[in-house]
């Protein structure tokens, strides 16, 4: 399962992600819980919530982040 495939409002735990230094610096790491806030149409980015922050992630990157679905509200 990849981050880009998740539905809106779905929460997940990051399992594996590509080695892009900026991803780490923005707080996206293995084991972190994130949830999907919005999906842009036409191959646009998704917006995810991580902690109290929102980060926009391009489709190309989000398709490479593998995740595991979790119930919402476990933080």
């Amino acid at each position: 399962m990849f981050l880009y495939d998740l539905k809106k409002e779905q929460a997940c735990r990051i399992e594996q992600l590509p080695t892009i230094p900026l991803l780490n610096s923005l707080g996206l790491r293995e084991g972190m819980n994130v949830s999907i806030k919005s999906h842009q149409p036409l191959g646009g980015p998704i917006v995810i919530q991580i902690g109290r922050r929102s980060v926009a992630v391009a489709k190309d990157i989000a398709e490479e982040i593998s995740v595991e679905k979790i119930e919402k509200n476990i933080s």
């Binding site: 892009i20 900026l22 991803l23 980015p45 917006v47 929102s54 980060v55 926009a56 391009a58």
Partner: peptide, 17 residues
């Protein structure tokens, strides 16, 4: 046109809101 003419790549979006 510029996208076709200028070599190089654009970075995928990774932006803090």
């Amino acid at each position: 046109i510029l996208n076709k003419v200028i070599p190089g790549k654009s970075d995928p979006m990774l932006l803090e809101i």
